[in-house]
């Protein structure tokens, strides 16, 4: 890896969060976003001599990410059983319709706002988020731990995500954290 490669890798590192957020919007299927980011990184680095690293890379990375997302999406969904493939296509269509109307917000800012909203959650809800997202337990695992029905856990998780979304709406990303 020469100095130019290193600079290109550094430039990508600085935009990693951005690329991931574009990947998530363009490929709404679990686990796919990381693969997309990885592929974009490899392709970005593979053609680094073409890029002007001094300019704003976001438009370029957005295009690359969308392109890779579409390609991986097709490859991945081709392997899925028919019903899951249909569902995936339907959700992607919904996401595209919505994405066309929505502006891209800075992922960094969203995370800062999310931190504030998480801090406002009641202890019980925060504990649920911690178990599900940070300890990566399944709803079934949590249900066993808390001696609840897993449907109840699923419902509670949906409500917490709704609350957080509402909170982010009230505390937009530009608000001080």
């Amino acid at each position: 890896m020469d100095a130019r490669d290193t600079r290109a890798a550094q430039a990508f590192l600085l935009h990693h969060a951005f690329v991931r957020s574009v990947a998530i919007r363009n490929a709404p299927w679990p686990g796919l976003a990381e693969d997309i980011v990885q592929q974009v990184f490899l392709e970005f680095l593979g053609k680094e001599e073409r890029w002007d690293l001094e300019r704003d890379l976001r438009p370029l990375l957005t295009t690359m990410t969308r392109h890779v997302a579409l390609r991986l999406w097709r490859e991945r969904t081709r392997q899925m059983p028919e019903n899951i493939q249909k569902l995936a296509d339907h959700v992607r269509q919904l996401a595209e319709e919505r994405d066309g109307a929505a502006a891209h917000e800075s992922d960094e800012d969203q995370l800062a706002a999310l931190r504030v909203c998480l801090a406002k959650l009641p202890d019980k809800s925060r504990s649920l988020v911690e178990r599900y997202y940070f300890e990566e337990l399944s709803a079934q695992d949590i249900a066993e731990q808390l001696q609840m029905k897993s449907d109840t856990v699923c419902r509670a998780l949906c409500r917490v995500r709704e609350k957080l979304r509402a909170c982010l709406g009230k505390n937009p990303a530009s608000s001080p954290a």
């Binding site: 969060a17 991931r20 919007r25 976003a33 959700v91 996401a95 992922d107 949906c158 995500r161």
Partner: peptide, 25 residues
């Protein structure tokens, strides 16, 4: 579903892939 998906993605982005304590108020 899309709202849930986006919030889920944001939360996964927030969690660094391990047991991490949440911010206290």
């Amino acid at each position: 579903l899309l709202d849930q998906w986006q919030m889920d993605a944001l939360l996964k982005d927030f969690a660094p892939g391990g047991a991490v304590p949440l911010p206290v108020p």
